[in-house]
């Protein structure tokens, strides 16, 4: 960013008005420009963290289901896998990470085209957090018969 600032010509045209919904200019101009069009720093960081969890977890999951156990999947086969703490950790972290990563990704798509106002964006974030939390609890409830054995 610094390089671009130093390349600014002397007769730069005035900056365009901040997008509707961008934070107030002044001391928070930089934050307004970036957060006005993007999803926020923590969501960005957490999207990367969950991406790494998903790459490791999903490869383990896909090799276990699509290569080793292809054609043998059943209620008991899942139970055999979830009998080991390793796969319990993999499956529970996959459940949490995939729900966050998927819903936040869908949110980024929505924010690219719709929802200009801060209130609408906040409402979407709250709705997705609620939906994601309920889905995680539901997923744990679904996995419980295997995990608790």
């Amino acid at each position: 960013m610094t390089a671009q600032v130093t390349q600014t010509p002397p007769q730069a045209p005035p900056a365009p008005a901040p997008a509707r919904g961008a934070a107030a200019p002044g001391g928070r101009m930089r934050r307004g420009v970036i957060d006005g069009s993007r999803g926020g720093m923590w969501a960005w960081l957490f999207q990367r963290v969950t991406a790494v969890v998903l790459i490791v977890g999903l490869m383990t999951h896909l090799i276990a289901t699509h290569i080793i156990n292809l054609g043998h999947l059943s209620f008991l086969n899942i139970g055999d896998r979830l009998g080991s703490p390793f796969f319990v950790i993999i499956d529970v972290s996959l459940l949490a990470a995939s729900i966050f990563h998927g819903l936040n990704g869908a949110r980024m798509v929505v924010l690219d085209y719709w929802l200009q106002s801060v209130a609408a964006r906040r409402a979407l974030a709250i709705a997705l957090w609620l939906f994601g939390s309920v889905t995680f609890v539901y997923g744990m409830w679904a996995l419980w018969p295997w995990i608790s054995k």
Partner: peptide, 23 residues
């Protein structure tokens, strides 16, 4: 990347519903 992401998020919830059918 975007199309695959949308397909995967739809699949994720279908997957959760199918696996939870045991319950």
């Amino acid at each position: 990347f975007r199309i695959a992401g949308i397909v995967l998020v739809v699949y994720l919830f279908a997957h959760i519903v199918v696996i939870s059918s045991a319950r």
